[in-house]
């Protein structure tokens, strides 16, 4: 026997629909409360004085709880970084796109595999080496060997003046 749609069926459907909206409205705040709060978001930028950094040296600063590497590269390093062919790279990116001012490489010192801090001037490509699971990065912070999927991230930054970098 064919079932006829009755007034009661409509009431059921309408009740479920309103109920679902109600449950969603309660569940969402419970989930969203775990996202970064206003005080965490407020710490979004850091200014760094880099006047004391000599060529061939790296400093590490904390930005949003994460280390940022600021490396003043030597001329040889810049030449090396620019000479790498894009076909050799797992995640092809030109050095020019990563370091707007080729002397200064500013990047998140966070391995893109599982988030460890790579070690400076180590590994097979004279760049960084992650001790956790063995990812090798070159002098431009590009992934060359190991499990990391992408190059180390470049944060948003700008030179406020000749000696000050504002990250974020």
């Amino acid at each position: 026997m064919e079932k006829k749609t009755k007034r009661r069926d409509f009431l059921f459907t309408a009740t479920y629909a309103v109920g679902a909206v109600g449950v969603g409205a309660v569940v969402w705040p419970m989930i969203d409360q775990m996202n970064p709060d206003a005080s965490v978001k407020a710490l979004a930028s850091t200014e760094v004085d880099v006047s004391a950094v000599d060529p061939g040296k790296t400093i590490t600063v904390l930005w949003r709880g994460k280390p940022v590497f600021i490396r003043r590269r030597t001329q040889e390093e810049i030449v090396e970084a620019k000479s790498v062919k894009l076909e050799e790279l797992k995640h092809p990116e030109k050095d020019e796109d990563r370091a707007k001012n080729p002397e200064w490489l500013v990047m998140l010192g966070v391995c893109t595999h599982l988030g460890c801090v790579p070690l400076d001037q180590k590994g097979d490509y004279n760049g960084w080496f992650c001790p956790c699971h063995g990812s090798h990065y070159d002098i431009s912070g590009r992934i060359r060997k190991g499990p990391a999927p992408t190059n180390m991230e470049i944060p948003e930054y700008k030179f406020v003046d000749a000696n000050t970098i504002k990250i974020g």
């Binding site: 970064p36 949003r64 599982l114 988030g115």
Partner: peptide, 24 residues
């Protein structure tokens, strides 16, 4: 960071788990 391996939403999930931009 294992969760960041999930395509598209991975990074968002990690930030949500952390409640920030790093473990804190």
């Amino acid at each position: 960071n294992l969760f960041s391996a999930i395509p598209l939403v991975g990074e968002g999930i990690v930030t949500w788990l952390w409640g920030g931009y790093s473990v804190d």
